[in-house]
Nucleic acid binder design. Structure first.
Lengths: 148, 148
DNA sequence: CGAGTATCGAGAATCGATCTCGATCGAGGG
DNA sequence: CCCTCGATCGAGATCGATTCTCGATACTCG
């Protein structure tokens, strides 16, 4: 993760302020843990990364941060929810590779041409179905290197 | 769902037999409920569809059916797991559109050209990451017609 | 028919996620 | 600097989906 951490916190502060919320001593460590985590992290992973964190507060703060658009919720295939910093803050557009076996989630980027081709195809699909496609995210299932 | 139900049960029987399991009076209704469900269904939806079903048995049987490859587990964005009949049985290849808001899951198919283009792109990605991409499934996030 | 194994169903046990509630913290006003 | 009031905090209770336990049944095969 090669993002200017101060700039990132600034972004978080702005979003929170815009909703009348504060960037508190309870939320900063959560954001910090998300930065240090390599990719989408579960609550328990975050608590492990920073033992000071109270589980209930992490849940609450992640909910708030998600509400103001600072973090994004990622659902994988093990029944735990994962969170990651929003692309708007990290400036790092990406999609997810989910291991259908163990649930690990990895990030990847599509080449520009593949990305635009995909967007075109999906826009067509969105029109033919009752869904509005935003292509905010593309979750792909595969098998990670650690699984058989 | 326009599949020959008898042929479908035959497929289920074959898969179960191949693993030394039986297609019992407890599993048939589950498969039947999956057929009548329109798309991936949650356990409670299945139980609602057939009040005779015992919840614990549905869980167990779906696990068995998944084990032998007769059904597939689908993870959406509401915290419930959904199940659907495996493509190998329905002969109906498709991907999923997941409403990021309410969690509803819909099916869709990609046009052949888009599908192959996508496969190519993903194969490349699989090589550059530590994931083995199988493109068994493509889950897309969008917003369904019923959500704001 | 009898043995041995796969299943069944109801209820208990798990465990991640959410909610409750009294104690704190922080920005502004006085 | 003190006070007020809403935003937050943290620990523990609660919720709800999923899984496990276990005695009772249903089949298959000899």
């Amino acid at each position: 993760m090669s993002v200017d951490v101060d700039e990132l916190h600034d972004g978080v502060v702005r979003r929170l302020a815009g909703a009348g919320r504060r960037h508190t001593s309870g939320r900063r460590p959560v954001v910090a843990a998300l930065v240090s985590a390599d990719g989408p992290a579960t609550i328990s992973e975050l608590v492990d990364l920073d033992v000071q964190l109270a589980q209930s507060s992490v849940y609450r703060n992640l909910a708030v941060l998600e509400e103001v658009g600072a973090v994004t919720r990622v659902v994988a295939h093990d029944d735990r929810v994962r969170f990651e910093l929003a692309e708007a803050l990290t400036h790092h557009p990406h999609h997810h590779l989910i291991c259908g076996n163990c649930g690990v989630v990895g990030d990847f980027e599509l080449a520009a041409d593949a990305e635009s081709a995909l967007r075109g195809a999906l826009a067509r699909i969105g029109r033919s179905t009752r869904f509005r496609m935003d292509l905010r995210r593309l979750d792909l299932l595969g098998t990670c290197a650690a699984c058989p």
